[in-house]
Design a protein around this nucleic acid. Structure first.
Lengths: 344, 344
DNA sequence: TTGAAAGCGCTACCAA
DNA sequence: TTGGTAGCGCTTTCAA
């Protein structure tokens, strides 16, 4: 790591206090009320053009910026949509989804804020979020329990939406059941005539939320067939992959769902180094449909995942905020379809 | 995209108002002051144990959560550290850095918030941030100008830190000059005996902040030598890479710096499909030292990039907050070193 | 067309 | 040990 050395310096004179609307009023020679009317373009009241100009000029001269906290305190509500920041590196899929969401919510005049909550868990996290009195909270994963939801609602959140595997009673839910991903992969391998199927389980913590349901999905796809499932713990490291590959033939697997494309790449490389034929000896399929899969040889089969559109989620949020009493909506939003290439 | 259908439902009875400290006081049979003392563990004042218990019970019963905006309004300052959310998908390097930073700041009792600012630019963005009255603002990239800085300072931000290629007068700066990355790559290729060197310039917008300085770095490394530089515009798409590879031999390049490992993988694949020998005919080097580079054949040479530690940045922030008048610190924090593998 | 003033929820000073 | 209360910056009702 690059070091940032400690450094000291003489302190400069105390900074000027932050200008308030009262300062603007004083400078413009009007009342604070008038300032508010002018700066907010209040339509219920007519302010003369010269006065408007004076106010605007005063505001600009002072560099006045309204105080969001004071405003929302007075208003009794905010337009803040809060979302916990992801703590695991997130792929291009999610990035795009989030950007879209954020853009759409901005258009609806909401302010989107990601709350950095490393170290906060469960209800503790919900309390921290509630302190900010967001008008809506979007919770990915499965970190929200009934108690957390209650806290948020009591704190005035008019819309709480979970994005994850299960719904919470009373909250809106965008169900993203990764079971489907595993199911697609499993069904595909089965259809390709594979019967002894491995499923990679990432060793990295935080991924169980995805890997567990994906495994279940594979199991579900194979139910009623004579095919079997073998769990394959695998850390995202070359040596671990090599170790797994070394004992590959003893496992006797003819197909493997590698959790996602990145793990698939790791595993494929190790298998190829070991001389295991892909797809003849073992078929490999990943998930996420990343570019890298297309660049591998053999080209990697994968499960393409569709997230909901950010615009749709933004509209759901807006609807819920406007009709807070409405019954929670639940939507299955995770699409999964196999992209068959050469590795399976 | 998966559609979320519109949906309607009858609205339920109006929700109870959000409980305030006055409600807690009423229920506990004490004053609001006492509630505040108890819930904040104010050490300057002793509250009897029975009273404490009554207050805590009342708070729990009502599900009371303090109102952060009211608190910081009263206090005259917040503990919020604001950072614009990245709009481009961000790699594991940055994710780790951010997590570390966030964790370290939490330990120092700051609240870290990422502000979703798609669509906001320059001073407009600075104004939006200023409305939240953050105690510190961390700005990656080069989006902050002198005017934006002034706005933030006037709004009471006690620390403004830029993380990018250049400093802004009056703000702390963590200089991350990607020139160094290009310089390392260029020097390496030169040392390997390459003289006609290509530099991939990603077609994706938003990446110029990195690609331009990296290119300059290569140029700088080659200055004084007889080596030449050729810019290679390349979109992150197979076809575009194939197109580039098809005319590769007419370019007569014997070395290429591929911007980063992902573009390197894309280009290498296209070159190999075209029958171009790597590294004999053309040496390839990427950047970022991603896992995928180790999985390629030949293994990808790369420039390993070191970001500052999140802990150090957190300490810089804390220092600056505590001594707001101190002279801005500037640190060169981007480390770059070549990891030589088989592709160069 | 403009101003005076109340009050959002909270904390901290001063008094009891 | 506890309570009364002023006031943070803002909007909005009511009066002038």
């Amino acid at each position: 790591m690059v070091q940032i050395p400690k450094q000291s310096a003489p302190s400069s004179p105390a900074q000027r206090p932050v200008p308030t609307s009262a300062d603007v009023a004083r400078l413009a020679g009007v009342s604070r009320a008038t300032v508010s009317y002018v700066l907010n373009n209040t339509s219920a009241v007519r302010i003369s053009e010269p006065t408007r100009r004076r106010v605007h000029e005063a505001a600009k001269e002072l560099g006045y910026v309204p105080h969001a906290a004071a405003r929302s305190l007075r208003a009794g509500h905010s337009r803040m949509v809060l979302m916990p920041a992801p703590t695991v590196p997130v792929g291009p899929l999610y990035s795009q989804f989030f950007n879209e969401l954020q853009w759409a919510l901005s258009r609806l005049d909401y302010t989107v804020v990601q709350y950095g909550g490393v170290g906060l868990h469960g209800d503790e996290a919900a309390r921290a979020w509630a302190e900010l009195r967001p008008v809506a909270v979007l919770v990915p994963g499965s970190g929200l329990g009934p108690e957390g939801l209650a806290v948020l609602k009591r704190a005035g959140a008019r819309a709480v939406v979970t994005l994850g595997p299960e719904r919470v009673e009373g909250a809106h839910a965008l169900l993203m059941d990764h079971d489907r991903v595993g199911h697609s992969a499993g069904a595909h391998l089965l259809a390709r005539g594979r019967r002894r199927i491995g499923v990679v389980m990432p060793g990295e913590s935080g991924l169980e939320i995805f890997s567990r349901p994906r495994l279940d999905g594979v199991r579900r796809a194979l139910r009623g067939s004579e095919a079997s499932v073998t769990e394959l713990p695998l850390a995202y490291a070359e040596e671990d992959a090599a170790r797994l590959a070394a004992r590959w033939r003893t496992l006797g697997l003819d197909g493997v769902f590698a959790y996602n494309d990145e793990y698939a790449m790791l595993l494929m490389r190790a298998l190829q180094d070991e001389g295991v034929g892909i797809p003849d000896e073992t078929a490999v399929i990943g998930a996420d449909d990343l570019m890298l899969g297309r660049l591998l040889r053999p080209r990697l089969s994968t499960v393409h995942i569709e997230l909901p559109s950010g615009r749709d989620l933004a509209e759901l949020v807006d609807r819920a905020v406007r009709r807070p009493g409405a019954a929670p909506e639940t939507h299955e939003v995770l699409g999964a379809r196999v992209v068959h290439r050469d590795s399976s």
